[in-house]
Nucleic acid binder design. Structure first.
Lengths: 219, 219
DNA sequence: AACACTATTGACCGATCGGTCAGAACAATC
DNA sequence: GATTGTTCTGACCGATCGGTCAATAGTGTT
């Protein structure tokens, strides 16, 4: 045994697991749970199939582990939002954070999308539990903003869905977007252009005047 | 043989084919091309597996036939749009038409989404050909609207993607939406509410003054 | 060197995959 | 009723599926 007494994970084991998770994320995100095969994941990871099962136990365990990993990345989004917050800043941050997450973890985002398309067999509890509460609490705050006259009286749930869909589109439909634009991938310039477009349309569309505050180094 | 001389399709044959196509659309839309099995399609259709292949030839032929059928339904969208058109009316129609298509053909929409997620192996030609031209021509007209001062100077491509994503979200992520809302399915009231929200935000966000024309009794 | 434990993997399992095929069942024409 | 062509389907094929296992190789401790 190696000296890693506190944790049961050795450095080498951890490295291999990351290799497998990364390979599995690619395959699952393209073909969904059923469409992905352990052999394809093994090939992608450059390991024999039996080795995948040795480290991950089963196809299902590997899959839910990927889902959990992806969802933990979203926890920070819209975390500190209060009725006193500036809607312009919060929504603008929301848009940029979501867009960044999609660009940073494209396979994870697609994995999530495929899971939802399949009817969310592994995530139904999460959707109708944690995430539902998350949306409800944020919606309540946004509703207060409307009552305070900070923005138009729009349904906050539709607003949240709008931002989700608009930002996710560019990662999950990347094949469509790049096919139509005729480029291999979105450039940094494109991404910034898209962010500004979304900020412009959504903020203005919700009747939120652009924040005049000196955009202090937020965060 | 029946009397259907002009066409090689008998009424009975056509009925069975529709049954199969409908069953296949459900299975493919949930699990993607690889994840769907002919046995599952056969069970869904209530027919023996060999019968599916008798009518459809192969899994791949069945799949591309479904893709083509779905895409033909989109042909009417934004068909007659000119530089003289009223942006408010055109975009409003666009939103409602897209939303209606998603509601009318939810499985077909999900099928398309799964195909894109997989990297569009069967649709890359369509995306970088037909659809690319479609977007380019519409974008050119929208750009003219901006130059005429009818609306803000936004990138028309991002606008088109925004409307696509926002409307498709409610069909392709229906599992997420209903899970969060806590309902079984979206009601007519919800749908109308969403349409109005999208019209409000997108038109206003693009600086399009609401059409004062007598809003003829659509719907 | 002996021992204990982990890591690795080829071989194999029953089940299911997409697809073929021969022949039964059916229908229409003469 | 015999003939012809279409429809239908159980049985079967090789390949691949997720998963098991025993044998082997490697590593750390004593």
């Amino acid at each position: 045994m190696m000296a890693d007494t506190a944790n049961h994970e050795s450095a080498s084991r951890d490295r291999i697991e990351q290799t497998i998770l990364s390979a599995a994320e690619q395959v699952f995100s393209q073909h969904g749970y059923r469409g992905a095969s352990l052999q394809a994941i093994a090939d992608q990871a450059g390991l024999p199939k039996a080795n995948i099962l040795y480290y991950m136990g089963s196809k299902q365990l590997l899959y839910v582990r990927l889902l959990n990993r992806m969802m933990s990345r979203w926890n920070a989004v819209l975390e500190d939002i209060t009725p006193e917050s500036d809607p312009a800043k919060v929504l603008s941050d929301f848009i940029r954070t979501k867009m960044m997450l999609g660009q940073r973890y494209p396979e994870g985002s697609k994995l999530f999308a495929a899971e939802i398309l399949a009817g969310a067999p592994f995530l139904s509890n999460y959707l109708s539990g944690e995430l539902k509460e998350w949306v409800a609490s944020r919606a309540a705050i946004i509703r207060q903003w409307s009552q305070q006259g900070k923005m138009d009286d729009v349904d906050p749930r539709w607003l949240i869905f709008l931002i989700w869909s608009a930002t996710q589109h560019y990662t999950e439909y990347s094949a469509q977007v790049t096919g139509i634009l005729g480029t291999e991938a979105l450039s940094e310039t494109d991404l910034e252009s898209i962010c500004q477009f979304l900020e412009h349309v959504i903020l203005k569309g919700c009747g939120i005047s652009a924040s005049h505050l000196p955009n202090s180094p937020s965060v």
